[in-house]
Design a protein around this nucleic acid. Sequence first.
DNA 1: TTCAATAGTTCACTAGTATCGAACTATCGA
DNA 2: TCGATAGTTCGATACTAGTGAACTATTGAA
Lengths: 103, 103
Amino acid sequence: MVQFVHPPRDEITLAGVLAALADPMRLRIVKSLAAQNDCMSCTEAAPCPDMAKSTLSNHFRILREAGLIRTSKQGVQHRNVLREEDINVRFPKLLKMILSYPE
Amino acid sequence: MVQFVHPPRDEITLAGVLAALADPMRLRIVKSLAAQNDCMSCTEAAPCPDMAKSTLSNHFRILREAGLIRTSKQGVQHRNVLREEDINVRFPKLLKMILSYPE
DNA sequence: TTCAATAGTTCACTAGTATCGAACTATCGA
DNA sequence: TCGATAGTTCGATACTAGTGAACTATTGAA
């Protein structure tokens, strides 16, 4: 049984968040989740279709451990949701700001 | 003769900036430069006194290549200044926002 | 209940990056 | 010219990212 690691809100660090968002693929994943404003499976939120499953899984793990997303099992899928509220409390406006830039 | 690499403004990437700021030591360097609002030598802006010179030099190189600082020679020292204007044009409010968080 | 399909994770490997001490370069002042 | 100062470069080691292959868990159909 897979156990997901989610840091509590007050253990989310700026360095962790920035490092997680510093990868273009992960930024695209987060943008997808923010646009959807709902849960998405890993493959739904995949930044490009030809990415190796293991790489994708690793990106989701990094986002999860940085505190940016929350993952739960739902049948055969993992449902991912942006921890927008937690990030906003910890680092107000940061997420909105970063997601607002093009590229 | 050492030649410094500074990306032009429009080649500064979000991923590069975030990656550069994702390191606590580099974040402290940038905070020092922002607080000083003036040039600082590498040792003046060092985040902690016991850091190896080569490591410090590497951090400045990364900040430089990300477009966050501009370095020029002045005698025996290298004078570093935050490229606040450039970053603000490229990613408005990002720098101010990130530097405003404690930690 | 058995078995194939689907969705992710874990493992082992390779390649790239961070840290450090040591050696090097450039500048200044005596 | 020589020593001190400020950084950079180099070589070694340790850690991290990306990948395919193997694995786990759930579902749905025969």
